[in-house]
């Protein structure tokens, strides 16, 4: 907690938020009619803060993240972010025509990093996600966990104030996921990046976040919020993590029961 406070004080930007979501609603027009997916969501992510967004499948988490990333427009309400956020998709979304290193360099190039520096920066980012030596590897030559790491490195290459992550580790085995949790926490603490992390895994949410936000289903509304003041570094099997997870799971179960019948 102390580190987070120090980081928040560090951030000497003129804006006091990394993302501000104000009364955002989103509906889609489907053959069955208009479907309200997100209903009046208001949420701030402070500079340097780590927030996880938790909710049942189909409750609108990805929709909200896409809105914050600017890939889609809200039906009502407004979203402002401190610069263009980086987005890490559920699928790695690396470009198969480029090597791992070149994927990262493309992100650097698009944000205007000089050609001479790109190679070194890309190698540094690969080292940050513990993938030294993967520079020349093609995407299909990497394992699932390695791909997610390269995707993380590419997202970090954007040097955004805000990192949006959409269930980035959902497809990985428990051990690899655990390693990546550690890496993510380390990177977050070393940089001043803010993270909005979507998951439906309660323990993962508690393991990572300073604040857990629970989204209800149909339509998605903010149902509850928890501040997690378990000191980092945490482990997913810590008893404090388990305790809070039980409480949150109870609530989540209630939400699913209430909105699950349709």
């Amino acid at each position: 907690m102390a580190t987070a406070l120090a980081k928040a004080a560090d951030a000497t930007t003129s804006v006091e938020y990394a993302a501000r979501i104000e009364h955002v609603s989103k509906s889609f027009t489907t053959p069955a009619g208009r479907q309200l997916v997100l209903d009046d969501i208001t949420l701030d992510v402070a500079p340097g803060e780590f927030v996880t967004l938790l909710g049942a499948s189909g409750c609108g988490k990805s929709t909200l993240l896409n809105l914050v990333a600017g890939l889609d427009q809200p039906s009502a309400g407004g979203i402002s972010t401190d610069g263009r956020p980086a987005l890490m998709f559920q699928e790695h979304a690396l470009f198969p025509w480029l090597t791992a290193g070149k994927n990262i360099e493309l992100a650097l190039k698009l944000r205007g990093v000089a050609k001479a520096e790109r190679r070194t920066k890309a190698e540094e980012l690969l080292a940050l996600v513990r993938l030294e030596g993967a520079y020349g590897k093609r995407v299909h030559e990497l394992s699932g966990g390695m791909r997610q790491r390269v995707a993380l490195a590419r997202a970090l290459a954007q040097d955004s104030k805000l990192l949006l992550m959409d269930e980035p580790f959902a497809a990985l085995d428990a051990i690899t996921r655990d390693v990546l949790h550690d890496e993510l926490t380390r990177i977050w603490r070393e940089t001043s990046v803010s993270v909005l992390f979507v998951t439906h895994n309660v323990r993962e949410a508690v393991r990572l976040a300073e604040r857990v936000v629970l989204l209800s289903s149909r339509p998605g509304r903010i149902a509850h919020e928890w501040t997690v003041d378990i000191p980092q570094p945490r482990r997913i099997e810590d008893s404090a993590v388990a305790e809070l997870s039980v409480e949150i799971t109870e609530q989540l179960r209630g939400e699913i029961r209430r909105h699950g019948q349709h």
Binding site: A69, G70, L71, R84, F89, A93, L106, L110
Partner: peptide
């Protein structure tokens, strides 16, 4: 579409 969306979040819009 995933590549196009990934490109957009990296800032590759329009001619780029």
């Amino acid at each position: 579409p995933l590549y196009l969306r990934a490109g957009r979040t990296l800032g590759a819009t329009g001619l780029r």
